[in-house]
Design a binder for these strands. Structure first.
Lengths: 230, 230
DNA sequence: CAGTATGCTGAATGGACGTTCAGTTAGGGG
DNA sequence: CCCCTAACTGAACGTCCATTCAGCATACTG
């Protein structure tokens, strides 16, 4: 090779590596999973050499941690930020509509399952946030009070995150894409809203199940295997 | 059926390989994911050599397909089988309590995300099953009728599968383990039941959101294209 | 008993991967 | 200008992995 004045072939500048690498990693980790993505692939996607990634992040795992942190911070920032979505029916479900955050949503959907500390922190804070949000809703008379407030919030958040994780199935079964769709996932939101508004069981069923479930509660109390958190 | 008494090194019998290998694979795939499990590890866990796995299943992917099939068939069998659990509040959530199926639950929880044809089929059939089950419930007056029956069923199934997939988080946040727990996941079931019985939103909120969500439905029907929201 | 199919293995192969390293290029401050 | 630092690379290394292969041992068949 001759010695060109600018060695970067196409518009690539020196020093833009760190973020570019991290974003490429989030993109590919989100699409093919961490184990399914090689440093070489990330390097190509970012227009750098594999060695540079290690130089910057120490190791593949170091890069993964950096991605975790960045995704957690970013998503938490816009969550805390504002109620950007009108009524926040299903915050997590709606967030995929914000185009800029789609790669992070994909990343979340993939990494929520193999559990890293930072992603766990993110989930914890989403729950915490939802707890506050729910309490406010109860005070404002928008949300019904609950006999098990914390458990309800946790379950609601996991419902929401769960459908995000399983968005491929939602797409296949309902034709609604939480991550790639170009509009609000209407059919999904309609169903969710109906469930959360009207419930699913009839009042009679409620009464029948109540005794059964309360009995469960007593059993597990007797066993003493339940620890309250925070 | 009588097996000859050939002693292998340590209690291992000849010819017991196929199932033993497949079960070991389900166990390890479920614990560490498919990409995170080597044939060597499976071989050791099954007490055979890696070569034998390939001999039987052709390739790692062949083994994976066999696992998919077996898990799908088994779980579908007991689902179709009977209502073994008293009131089937959350069939998927409760199924992990059946000790014999725990490895399969773990396997499901891991592989639901990276989507294989057989697992997709399984999900489809669970939905189909739930659709029937729900219709019956409606007829019997136990379950409220829905304006979007199919969407509601899909969402309910994905809620259930979603919490299964995220069972580690449920464990961390609520101390309830859907897969390893030794009793019914009481706190989880209580919350689920409350949500499904009473709903979450107050009637007033319902009315407010109704117009919003129905508007979504119209938009997606008309499909105008870009929607900018502040 | 001979022959063959089958369960099974150890060793070898080739490729992919994460990581290391020596060295090159550019930039900025003295 | 020189030197220091930091970005960056190609090549090499060692490891792990899925897969192949030749061959052994056992069981079945005629």
């Amino acid at each position: 090779m001759a010695r060109p004045e600018t060695r970067r072939s196409e518009g690539q500048e020196r020093g833009a590596g760190l973020e570019r690498i991290r974003d490429a990693a989030i993109e590919l980790f989100g699409r093919h999973g961490v184990k399914g993505t090689s440093l070489k692939a990330i390097a190509e996607h970012a227009g750098v050499s594999p060695a540079l990634i290690v130089h910057h992040y120490g190791s593949k795992d170091g890069l993964r941690v950096a991605c975790d942190q960045h995704v957690a911070e970013s998503l938490l920032a816009i969550k805390t930020d504002a109620v950007r979505q009108g009524p926040q029916l299903d915050p997590v479900g709606m967030m995929g509509q914000l185009v800029e955050y789609r790669p992070m949503m994909r990343y979340l959907a993939k990494t929520l399952v193999d559990g890293s500390p930072h992603v766990n922190d993110l989930v914890d804070q989403i729950v915490k946030h939802a707890e506050q949000y729910t309490e406010d809703g109860v005070s404002a008379g928008l949300i019904k009070p609950s006999a098990h407030p914390r458990a309800r919030v946790v379950v609601l958040v996991l419902f929401s995150l769960g459908t995000l994780v399983l968005h491929q199935h939602l797409k296949r079964l309902l034709g609604v894409d939480l991550v790639e769709g170009d509009g609000p996932p209407a059919a999904y939101l309609q169903a969710v809203m109906e469930i959360y508004s009207e419930g699913v069981f009839t009042p009679g069923t409620y009464e029948n199940l109540r005794s059964y479930v309360e009995q469960l509660g007593e059993e597990s109390d007797a066993k003493g295997g339940n620890d309250e958190r925070d």
